[in-house]
Design a protein around this nucleic acid. Sequence first.
RNA 1: GUCCCGGUAGCUCAGUUGGAUAGAGCAGCCGCCUUCUAAGCGGCAGGUCGGGCGUUCGAAUCGCCCCCGGGACGCCA
Length: 668
Amino acid sequence: MFRTNAFALRNSGTPELWNSGTPELRNFGTSELRNFLPTIRPMADPVQLLAERFRAAIDRTFPQAAGADPLITPCKSPEIGDFQSNAAMGLGKRVGKNPREVAAALVQAVDLAGLAEPLTDKSIAGPGFINIRLRPAALRDALSAMDTAGLGIETPADRRTVVVDLMGVNLAKQMHVGHLRSPVIGDCLARTFERLGHAVIRQNHVGDWGLPIAMVTRRIADQAARGVISLDSLTLDDLDAAYKTAQAECERDIAGLEAVKRYGLGPKALAELEEQVNGATESFTAARQTLVKLQAKDPAVYRVWQRIYDVTMKVCLDVCAALHVNCTAEANAGESSYADELAPMVDDLVARGVAVPDQGALIVRVDAPDKAADGTPMWEPIKEPCLVRKSDGGFLYATTDICAVRRRVQKLGAHEIVYAIDARQNLHIRQFAAAAIKAGYAIHPKTGRPARIAHAAFGAVLGEDGRPFKTRSGESVKLADLIAEMFARAANAVQTRSPELAGDDARRVAEAVGIAALKYGDLSTDRVKDYMFGFDRLLSFEGNTGPYLLYAFVRIRSIFRKAAERGVGDGWKAAPFACDLPAEKNLALALLRYPGAVRGVADTLEPHRLCQYLYDLAGVFSTFFDQCPVLAAETPAQRDGRLRLCDLAGRVLADGLGVLGIPTVERM
RNA sequence: GUCCCGGUAGCUCAGUUGGAUAGAGCAGCCGCCUUCUAAGCGGCAGGUCGGGCGUUCGAAUCGCCCCCGGGACGCCA
């Protein structure tokens, strides 16, 4: 297969994104260039090679089942073999034969010359598993083939444009733990698509519009006019307080009023509630007027809104920068940016009969999906209709979301839109996605097919008591404070374990460790489940944690530092990979699984698959590190073969951590 | 009420389109640092995979029915 790698190279390094502040690593990254040569190389993946051979054998032996999947997977345990084919069982059913007979026939027919040890009857186990042992030379070839800048990840045949919707901040609301997962997960998915060679557009769908925002704007404008606050020194805490007060002011206790009337709770209670309701109605009316002014871009009101926007976004983008989340002002595409498009869009929906009146409002019914040309339904039926205009003429968040789909597909050319959003929004997302498809807005202008609209749903962040993460007094924790505490704890741990690190070095290490702990904790479990947050566990540095992976990487880098100190040349770069001993072989086999692991994340939108892979890799490396001395190897040839294996392992680890959005360090 | 998502070791979690004896980490116990970072490695112990029925050569995984927990359900965003 012909590889040019130029694209993979551009997307694999991106040191400015995940290595900033670690200049040593940048050198490490660019050292990959030495392997960059546009050469013809054999396909690396043994699974694919074995599958080809088995497919040929199946076609020849059982023509009636030609094309059947050979079902090649890595063996669970190294004692059994390296890879196995599970095809015989299913095949037995299809051709009406005993699975073991089928396996025996396949063992006879398959030609594994140059790839694996010859198969015998003893290769068949249980109901018909066929166990395969790779030849060391084939393993070395496979490793050599992936030992390029792209680390075995091929440039995609179909380069897609993927929009990733991440962040989910609201104007004038303090960021708390609840805002952690969307940027962490969304950025990781974005990096995954980028790494695979797709075009990624990040979108920060800021909640910056609508009546609630108008309420705050009015209150802030009011306070500024009265000199209670200064717009110049506004903080997000001020805004958060104003938001809550404004919300409460406009909250009419109509239910309370009716209860008082019904149960006759006395004139005093009645008077109080009437006053509350009247006051709230007044505030509500004022907020509506502010909204109208805002929509008309009234300079005085708009200036206040802009200030609120800037203050909020500053905090948001600072958090992103601190966490190495690649989301900048470029990604901003708030609800306000759709405001002028909503009325014409809804008119279009009405004109084409997509939206219909119902109880005074406008809805899009999505319970009976349209059929595609091939007869398949274009979305899953949903009983609840999607509301696009209220009976008072106002638009809803679904309207904006439909509008966003339209822009993303029609203008930005998205083949795929991924929403990194709270699991509770699932129904809403399915509704507006269905409505957008029904309206034709989700049909890609070039391909003519609907864009894939996917919800990367995630659960809540819980405290160690299993309840939503809060302070002891029950308040939500500011995200910036949480990050600061994680960094402080990381710094403390680094100081304890590595007192020789000081100054900027120590700070950088603490930062990397803190980010690793925080992000890996979030990414390493199935995202749809709630996850339990605990500083101690995430920073424990033991077991399946971010710091453990960093540590594995650091130990590899240490070998190369020592090698340089001892005057070991770079002859190892052309040495055959060491993969004779079990620990070497296990490491080699694990390395080969890397491209599949990254693809798996893109296919399922599940970052924890890559985490699991990297943890496995770090584990087999640690065993190797323990059992196979590199610099003190028995022969120079063995040393060089191990050095090359370590180099590849280090690059895969750093690359994988980069996909997760975790920066690496040279020592810790 | 309808729908969605969970339930796996004492705790926190993995478990590939159904595959071999259900795996890690923490906590507990036992070993291993004059040698490349012990934030590590090796070992022991720990399981009615919420319950039941079914499909199959084979079920944590698929189907049906229950139980428990969380969440969402047109005029907030």
